[in-house]
Every structure is written in structure tokens, then in C-alpha cells.
Design a protein around this nucleic acid. Structure first.
Length: 574
DNA sequence: TAGGGATGCGCG
DNA sequence: AAAGCGCGCATCCCTA
């Protein structure tokens, strides 16, 4: 059952389902939603313009929602498919149609047939645009485009999932719900432990605001001494000044980057690198960060589904997706609770194996460690080579060890390598590529196209040709990676949606009082759970991973194992 | 002095 | 051992 949520012109709320439209005061929305969620049978799918705008209030009022359809996120996906710009006004306008669709036999995870819209039918039911602030009436992102695209795709073994875009719409929307829930419950964070870690590494917190820890000042002075400079004479935090100072000391450097400094043989380098590391920790995740972002034992970043073109999430506030390993010890379960930390082992190469139907690579991934499997296949000598080679293949590396290993990987895994090469060539030609579920890569810029055109003309200079070629290659590296990173993001969303669905119990009380998701990092999930329920949560994480593999790659021999650890602190997970 | 670009580095 | 993809954020530096 679809229920469309919209504002009414007089400030109330309109709920529309198959039985018609009702209007209710805005203050009663949460109670109504909660009641509908409690009704026996299949839970409704709430259709609204923006989960991030609508759901926090509902959740805060105790109305946890099982499924939704986020018009804004889905329109962004469909705009990519159609090659048009997303229409913000459209997402605020609710008008939809529901074609009679046979319920699929098997899709226990997502009942997504009801998210398929078809603009060609007469609208039933149709909801007029609500409030005075709404944009012009427009058809809601019809998934007609999705059906066309899906039908146009290959058939046969290993063909994309049927109605893939409808599945993507459901997964993206489920992610939006999870994002709001994770921000709401927050990541358990011990300010005390964080402070202890900082004190151990940097010394005590300086009393005066803005003052630097004494340890950092001392380390800076040592660097200056070893460079033969007066104390306080080198602004170590200014890259240009640092480069100048290093040059004065006879060191050939072109930048202040750590990896470049590491190659130098000079007594000042070791303390300098230590200084940079500690300085970074202080500015990015020091006491200021702690004051700003941790409250009542929780870190509550906002997650931004769909922030990245590939479909990965972004985050806003506190750098949630860049938590350095140095401070992960501060992520600490409540007393009597644990963190169940799971991550997908070698997710991207496994995704590539499945996308490309590479049987040899599927065999290499039969165990828990795909890279070890590649070594066992005889393609390369070491795990490190296997990893570097695969990363190079997926990112488009052209130099160093990864490029040297590539020919051997190509011989052993021709289908996988051909797949990413073809994605790269398509990008170089300015074409679109698609993820497994049909998210479409953006078009290169107008400037990019012009450059290619100019370079192709007879009048082009050698420099123009070089530049155009280099830009083409760069875009090819992007599309090469897009298919893998984007499909991996879809797997991860499906995984997360499955974990979320399996964890929730309507009888379990408020979300935070039962096992719940608290963190998501591209291929990694953390659940906060009462200790005695950890074994059950571990099983949920594994089972949802198996489901995700089936949802995206039904019939594929590629497995997607997850490593799971039950710990009190995040830093103990691996 | 506000703001945008560049740099560097954290994560996957 | 560093270079190839995608980000967010703090800081520096330059410009308007």
C-alpha cells in the first residue's frame, strides 16, 4: 500500500492511498503514521518528497517507518537515466499513478513492485499539489523511464536484474531512512576515552583556548633545530614556507606532502612527519572537534545519501566518513551493550567479478580472501601484488607495480579486465556508463566535448591533441571506476537495508532500546546491541550480505563474505 | 575581511 | 614503495 504524504494548502497534512485522501492536523501526523505502521500485514510505503526533511520529526515522535519512496532521491537517479537536470520542484509535487503490476513471486526483501510508476496510464489516484509554496504541477518521477531502460538491457545469463531501477529506488529510499535513524540515535562516543587518547598522543589539553599542546611546540622546535633554523622561525603549518625551509637545508622537495618527505634521508624528516601527523589529529579530531560534535555520549553526524555521483553517501559535520583509526577507540558501546562491526571483504573486486561474469575471478573469491585466492590461482606471487593490481585495474593506474602486474591479471581474468577497459573506452568517447542497478554516469562537461572536437579537427595543434587525450583518459578513469564503485554502493545499500529490516522489531520498544545501526562507511556497518543479542546480530549481518548478493546478481557464483566482530570499542574490530 | 581556490590528509 | 577512483574538512593564501 502506497500512502502519499503531502502538505495541504491550509497547513495540515494530506494522506492519500487507494481509499482516497484524508486531511489531518500536522500535529497528528506522527501518531497516524505510527498507527498505520502497527497495522497487521505488509507495512505501507510512504511516498514523500524528502526523507531528510520529513522523517526526523516523525522518528523523534516515535513513528519508526519501515519503507518509503523518496521522490527527491529517485528523481535524481532518473534524471541521470534520462539525461536531464533534476527538478527540485517536481519532488515537491505529488501526483502519481499506479499501474497494475503482478506481484513478483520472489522478492521477500523489498516489495518494490509498488514503487513502479508509469506515466502512460491515467492517474489513479492523483493528488493535487498541496501548499502554496509548491512548484508547478508535474508528473512525479515516473519510473516509466526505468522500465524502458530495464527492458532495453541484455537478456540471458547474468543479465541485469529485472526492474533494476525499481529496486534501486527502494534501496536508495531505505538508505535515506537509515541515514536519519543513525543520526537520530548517534554513534556511541566516549568523550573521556577520546580525551585520554588525545592526552596520550599530544599531552594534556592546553588551558588557554587556541593554544597548542606543549608536545607539538617541542616537536616543532626539534624539527627547526635539526634543520639548523632558529626556534619559531619556520611556520611548519604553511606548506610553501615549509618547502622553502627544507630547500634552505639542502633538501630537494617540490611539495610538503608526507609521501614525498618520506623519501628523504635527513634527521629532521622523522620528527617532521610525526609533527604533521599529530598536528592533523589535533586540527581534525582534537578537543575542538570533541566539543563541537560529541554530546551526551553520542556523535551525531548527518549522512547524505546520494551525495556522490556514484551513489555513495556523503556526510556533513564532523567528517563522519573519515574517522581516523587513531581515535576509533573512543567509539565505545554503552555498558552491557556491544558494537557488532561488519565489513564486506574485498567488496569492489568481488563486484567486478560479478559484473563481468568472470568465472576465474569468482573461483578466486570462493574463500574469505579474494586476494589470497588470486595468489592461489597462480596469477601473481603475493597478496600485495594481487591487491595493487586489482586496485590499479579498477582505478586506471598506469604506472608502478600495479601496471606491471596488470598483464598477468589480464591473462588470468580476461573478462574482468575487459569489463573495466570497456567502461574506460566508453568514457573516453564521452558516453554514459551504468551501474548494476542502472545509476547512470553524468555526461562530461561542455568544455570537455569542445576540447575533443577541436583536437579532432585538422587545425589542432599537437598540444591541443595531448590535452584532449589526457582529458579523455581522465574521464575514462572516472567511468571505469564508476561502474565498480557505484555497483558496490548499491550492494552496500541493499545490505544495509536488509540489516535494518531484520533488526527491527515492532515489539522491541524505541529504536535505541533494541539492536540498531549506528554507522555506515561504504562497505562497513556497525550495530549497537545488547550484549546477549550479539550472536543473533552477527547472523543478521551475514544473512543480509547473502541477500544483497542475490538481489544484485541472482545466479552469480560470486560470493560476498563479511567479516564480523563483536567488540566494545571500534578499534578492537580489526 | 569575507570568500574562493589550492593544498594536504583522513577515510573507503 | 607511490598512482590511478570517490569524498569532507582544516588551513593557508590570495583576491576583491
Amino acid at each position: 500500500m502506497l500512502i502519499v504524504v503531502d502538505r495541504s494548502p491550509d497547513g495540515g497534512m494530506l494522506l492519500t492511498d487507494d481509499d482516497g485522501t484524508i486531511e489531518l492536523p500536522a500535529a497528528e501526523l506522527a501518531a497516524t503514521v505510527a498507527a498505520r505502521e502497527r497495522e497487521p500485514g505488509e507495512p505501507p510505503r510512504w511516498v514523500w518528497s524528502d526523507t531528510a526533511a520529513r522523517y526526523p520529526e516523525l522518528l523523534a515522535a516515535g513513528a519508526r517507518v519501515e519503507r518509503c519512496h523518496d521522490l527527491r532521491l529517485v528523481d535524481a537517479i532518473l534524471a541521470g537515466v534520462d539525461g536531464r537536470a533534476p527538478e527540485p520542484a517536481l519532488a515537491r509535487t505529488v501526483e502519481f499513478v499506479r499501474p497494475p503490476m503482478p506481484r513478483p513471486q520472489v522478492e521477500a526483501l523489498f516489495e518494490f513492485d509498488d514503487v513502479v510508476f508509469d506515466g502512460s496510464s491515467a492517474p489513479v489516484p492523483a493528488v493535487r499539489p498541496g501548499g502554496p509554496d509548491l512548484g508547478r504541477p508535474a508528473p512525479v518521477p515516473t519510473l516509466a523511464a526505468t522500465q524502458r531502460a530495464d527492458l532495453a538491457r541484455d537478456r540471458g545469463p547474468g543479465a541485469p536484474r529485472p526492474r533494476a531501477l525499481a529496486l534501486l529506488a527502494a534501496a536508495e529510499s531505505a538508505g535515506a531512512l537509515a541515514a536519519v535513524e543513525m543520526q537520530s540515535t548517534g554513534l556511541p562516543w566516549s568523550a573521556e576515552t577520546h580525551d585520554a587518547l588525545l592526552t596520550e598522543l599530544l599531552g594534556p589539553r592546553p588551558e588557554a583556548p587556541g593554544a597548542r599542546p606543549a608536545s607539538l611546540t617541542a616537536l616543532g622546535a626539534e624539527v627547526e633545530r635539526l634543520l639548523g633554523a632558529a626556534p619559531g622561525s619556520i611556520p611548519l603549518d604553511s606548506p610553501p614556507e615549509l618547502v622553502k625551509a627544507l630547500r634552505r637545508a639542502g633538501l630537494e622537495v617540490s611539495s610538503a606532502r608526507s609521501w614525498e618527505l618520506r623519501r628523504l634521508d635527513h634527521p629532521a624528516i622523522e620528527p617532521l612527519l610525526r609533527y604533521k601527523k599529530l598536528s592533523r589529529l589535533l586540527s581534525a579530531n582534537g578537543w575542538n572537534w570533541l566539543d563541537a560534535h560529541v554530546r551526551d555520549g553520542r556523535f551525531r553526524p548527518s549522512y547524505v545519501p546520494g551525495a556522490v555521483v556514484t551513489g555513495r553517501w556523503g556526510s556533513d559535520g564532523g567528517g563522519a566518513l573519515q574517522l581516523p583509526k587513531q581515535i576509533r577507540g573512543a567509539v565505545q558501546a554503552d555498558p552491557g551493550w556491544v558494537l557488532v562491526v561488519a565489513d564486506a571483504a574485498q567488496l569492489e573486486p568481488r563486484i567486478l567479478a560479478a559484473l563481468s561474469h568472470d568465472a576465474a575471478m569468482a573461483r578466486a573469491g570462493a574463500g574469505e580472501d579474494l586476494y589470497a585466492g588470486i595468489v592461489a590461482s597462480g596469477a601473481v606471487e603475493s597478496r600485495e601484488q594481487a591487491k595493487l593490481g586489482m586496485l590499479g585495474a579498477m582505478y586506471g593506474g598506469t604506472t608502478g607495480q600495479s601496471a606491471r602486474v596488470l598483464p598477468r591479471l589480464q591473462r588470468a581474468f580476461p573478462d574482468a579486465i575487459r569489463f573495466v577497459e570497456e567502461a574506460a573506452r566508453a568514457g573516453e568517447r564521452g558516453e554514459h556508463v551504468r551501474t548494476r542497478l542502472g545509476r547512470t554516469s553524468p555526461a562530461p562537461s561542455e568544455a570537455w566535448r569542445e576540447r575533443q572536437l577541436i583536437a579532432a579537427s585538422d587545425a589542432a595543434t599537437a598540444a591541443q591533441r595531448d590535452e584532449a587525450r589526457s582529458a579523455a583518459r581522465a574521464w575514462g578513469r572516472f567511468t571505469r571506476n564508476f561502474v565498480v564503485q557505484g555497483s558496490a554502493a548499491e550492494w552496500a545499500l541493499s545490505w544495509m537495508a536488509g540489516v535494518r529490516r531484520r533488526l527491527w522489531s515492532p515489539e522491541g520498544g524505541p529504536l535505541a532500546s533494541q539492536p540498531h545501526l549506528v554507522f555506515f562507511l561504504h562497505d562497513e556497518l556497525i550495530v549497537h546491541a545488547p550484549r546477549e543479542r550479539a550472536p543473533e546480530v552477527e547472523q543478521v549481518m551475514r544473512a543480509a550480505a547473502v541477500d544483497a548478493g542475490r538481489l544484485l546478481f541472482q545466479g552469480s557464483p560470486v560470493s560476498f563474505p563479511v567479516t564480523v566482530a563483536t567488540v566494545e570499542r571500534y578499534s578492537d574490530a580489526k
